[in-house]
């Protein structure tokens, strides 16, 4: 593997890990507040459709992003209503959202655009914008560091930089603000938070809305940056990989970044090896690499590498004492 291969691989790692990071962070907000969110996949898919459809019709990327976030937040509120207000089963509610999104995106897409469930290809203005870091062209010829700066770090979508920035921001919000302390507290011991006079229901709704916004961005990235429009079932299990990453990362922001990059790297490796012969890769079946993130997560869950410790009250509806 020469220098160039590594840069190409890492570049594609960054590209595919962006939706994973955003979605895993979305799950982090919800689950840290005690709401298990298995509907990440569905929300991302619905947002991808809403974003691409709106951007195609209006020709504006910003409106597309807005629509993507709106739809994702709306689905989050359905999940919130079922699991917070109605105290229904959170897993069942998330499963329902995944199905509704998978079916409705195709039906509405077919009815509105009549292209077999696709949305029309987006014009340049309707796609997300990329950003060149300052001085990227000037330093390209500097050996080693030049290509790293101008090819690997520069020229990504603005949303990519935002996704990576969201990791420390989320850490700061969760561990350094009053909101974050309360958020973590409702996920660990809602009774105590209630006793302190803070509304558990309000905190959980806020957390679910934060998750909805991030999930919406992930969806917009899929259909407006990675691809040029919506395609049926384009989230392709990324929501579940993100969920796996969240568990693998033990519900911690910094670990989420590393895990998503690892899972993204595996994905990039398997895409790359389909086109180019890599020395070790040809002897490993492609399916094994595809399955690796899931296998790793199960091994971690089994407690053989470290111990997974989810928020204590996650999945448990809160019933106020009467």
């Amino acid at each position: 593997m020469d220098h160039n291969t590594i840069i190409v691989l890492l570049q594609s790692t960054i590209r595919v890990s962006v939706p994973l990071i955003l979605t895993a962070l979305a799950g982090l907000y919800a689950e840290r507040s005690g709401v298990v969110d298995i509907g990440l996949e569905g929300k991302m898919l619905a947002a991808a459709f809403a974003g691409a459809a709106t951007a195609a019709v209006t020709g504006s990327a910003l409106t597309g992003i807005g629509a993507a976030m709106l739809v994702s937040v709306a689905l989050s509120l359905v999940h919130g209503y079922a699991s917070i207000s109605q105290r229904g089963d959170q897993i069942v509610s998330g499963t329902a959202i995944n199905f509704i999104a998978a079916g409705a995106t195709v039906i509405l897409g077919q009815a509105w655009f009549a292209q077999g469930g696709r949305t029309p290809a987006l014009s340049a203005d309707a796609r997300l914008a990329t950003y060149k870091l300052p001085g990227a062209d000037a330093v390209r010829d500097v050996p080693v560091l030049g290509p790293i700066y101008s090819d690997l770090l520069s020229g990504h979508y603005l949303l990519t930089y935002f996704a990576f920035a969201m990791v420390p921001i989320t850490w700061w919000v969760l561990y350094r603000t009053r909101f974050g302390l309360r958020l973590r507290a409702v996920g660990e011991n809602p009774g105590a938070v209630d006793t302190a006079g803070i509304s558990v229901v309000r905190m959980r709704y806020l957390a679910v809305i934060c998750g909805g916004m991030l999930c919406g961005l992930a969806g917009a990235y899929l259909s407006m940056a990675l691809a040029n429009g919506f395609v049926k079932n384009m989230s392709a299990g990324r929501g579940f990989i993100a969920l796996a990453a969240l568990v693998f990362a033990n519900w911690k922001p910094k670990n989420i970044l590393l895990t998503c990059l690892l899972f993204g790297f595996l994905d990039a490796l398997s895409i790359y090896s389909q086109n180019v012969e890599l020395p070790i890769m040809s002897s490993i079946p492609d399916q094994a690499i595809q399955a690796l993130p899931y296998i790793l997560t199960v091994v971690l869950l089994a407690g053989f590498i470290g111990k997974a410790s989810p928020p204590k009250a996650s999945g448990v509806p809160y019933v106020k004492e009467r």
């Binding site: 079922a82 109605q86 229904g88 069942v92 509610s93 329902a96 199905f99 998978a102 079916g103 409705a104």
Partner: peptide, 25 residues
Amino acid sequence: PEITRDMIVVIQGLVILFAGALEHM
């Protein structure tokens, strides 16, 4: 032709939502 078989997936999701998560509504 406007209504593809994906309609079943939507109905399935709605049944799970209303008969499962919102069964006490």
